[in-house]
Computed example of a mutant assay.
Amino acid sequence: MLAGVFRRHILKAHKGWHWGSTNPISCLSAAASSRVRASSVSFPPRTQYIHTTAVKQKKTQKSEPPPREFDLLRYDMRDLGKSPKPALYLGFSGLIPFISAPLAVALTETYLPEVAFAQVAYGASIVSFLGGARWGFALPESSPAKPDWINLGNSVVPSLLAWIAMLFSDSVTPAALMVIVGLGVSLHYDLSLLPTYPSWFKALRSILSVVAFLSLVATLMLKEVYPEKKIFSE
């Protein structure tokens, strides 16, 4: 009797274990099928938006470089016709001593040291005059240029360069080079560092300075080409 009861308990336990246990192979197949179903579901593509407002603001906020010296000179040339008649006549007639020196050397085919020195001396006086013009322009109370260290100090530099040029009285070449430097420095001051002159004056001033510069260079070049002959022989 006890043996029969014991067999019944074993049979019930075996049936309960058989129905309550899980099969690992079936679990794996179920998980795989669920993944396949999930992957088969298609989602609509997402649209990405790029904000370009900041880029546009950076482009618009980019400041333009300041105009260069030659750009300012190009705009001033438009007002050359507004120059007063006395300024035009006196300015261009003042080029005669500059142009006459290389013309005399080229026509005579002889380098004349007295003529070359006269050209250099005249150029030194013009350089000194340009410095004095800046000084006088800064003195009136209504002038846009104030009588400060910048304006008055820069107006003295051309006069010093002209004085140094006259110290080379024995040699025309270094004197002419110093006058050329004085013309360039004074023109640079008037156009870029202290651009307060009227537009017509800066245009006229640029043309006169360029012609004077080329005349001095032409004299120095002809000096190396033609033989030297003094007008006043000792």
Rank of each mutant, 00 (worst) to 15 (best):
L80H: 13
L139K: 07
D190F: 02
T110W: 12
L191W: 05
Q48R: 09
S29H: 00
K223Q: 15
R37Q: 06
A176S: 11
T196N: 01
L208K: 03
C27H: 15
P174D: 10
W135Q: 11
L28Q: 14
P24N: 12
L72H: 02
Q119F: 01
G182V: 10
G153M: 08
T108R: 10
W19I: 05
F137M: 10
Y75W: 09
T219G: 05
S233G: 00
I96W: 06
P102I: 06
G132M: 00
E114N: 07
P24K: 09
H18L: 15
A175Y: 04
V185I: 11
Y226I: 09
G16L: 08
N154L: 13
S128F: 09
S206N: 15
F70C: 05
A175R: 07
K146Y: 12
R37L: 03
A106P: 06
A118D: 04
I164C: 13
A116M: 01
V156G: 07
L214Q: 02
A30V: 08
T196S: 01
K85M: 09
A203T: 08
Y75R: 09
I231Q: 09
I126R: 05
F117Y: 10
F129P: 11
G136F: 13
A175P: 07
P195F: 03
E228N: 15
M221V: 14
H9Y: 10
P102N: 09
A175I: 06
A121Y: 09
P66F: 00
W17V: 04
Y111Q: 05
K56I: 09
P174F: 06
F213H: 08
H51T: 10
A145H: 01
L194F: 07
L130D: 01
A118T: 11
V115T: 10
S199G: 02
W17Q: 07
H51N: 14
V156F: 10
E109V: 05
T47H: 13
V210I: 15
L191K: 02
I207C: 12
N154T: 05
D79A: 14
E109T: 14
P84K: 02
L191H: 07
W149R: 13
V115F: 03
A104Y: 14
E69W: 00
L112S: 06
P67A: 08
S21F: 06
P102E: 06
S26H: 03
L152S: 14
V156A: 12
S233Y: 01
